[in-house]
Amino acid sequence: MNWNDLATALFGADHAVRADGVFLSGTGQLDGRTLAVIGSTDHAAIGFDLALRQAQAVLQVVVDAPGRPILLLIDTQGQQLRRHDEMLGIHRAMAHLGQCIDLARRQGHAVLGLVYDQALSGGFITSGLMADACDALPGAEIRVMRLPAMARITRLPEAMLAELSQANPVFAPGVANYVAMGGVRRLWQGDLTEALRLALADLPAADERARDGLARGGRRLADTVIRQVLSA
């Protein structure tokens, strides 16, 4: 879904979300309350500078509008694969973005991620996956890598991976698999504004994803192993 159509559907045509290149920022109104919107578009590759830009936007909300909810709009092809970004320390910039989102949560900002187009590994891990909860549109695509690439790198037959992925969400791309594993809290169906309202009203206070993964049957071991360690 196009970011502008999404913002219009969520906040009406008078929303104040703007794109500057692939970077999204601005505000929208929901039930008389202002939401901060920060994100990316055009399947942006998240490089050192774009991670910093998003981090700065988060810090700005913390400074300027204490308590304002933050909606992270996610559309990324993953991390920027460039030597220059590695030299700069792209891992540090991404960790910094994750730390800024974490700070916002601790300072009382509700932070909600929404994968509205695609989300790949490194571009997603320090934004949507660091929010209080991450939701997705049903048409979104979430993955670390596609099956053919996975088959090549792991040197396993693609047919075997495809077969196993029928029953085990750990192996295959797809937004439904991330829901089953607890990584995505819910898919937005029907009226989008209502879905946003519902999501904001029901944010978990702690990281419940392992428990969700167990309850939904998509990631049965994580929660069990965490408990085993706690009681060992």
């Binding site: 996956l129 670390v144 996975m150 791309p173 594993m181 607890g182």
Partner: peptide
């Protein structure tokens, strides 16, 4: 990569 989806979520749980 053999269990990439679970690994990705796990890493973010480690960060949190």
């Amino acid at each position: 990569l053999h269990e990439a989806n679970a690994g990705l979520i796990a890493v973010s749980e480690v960060m949190r």
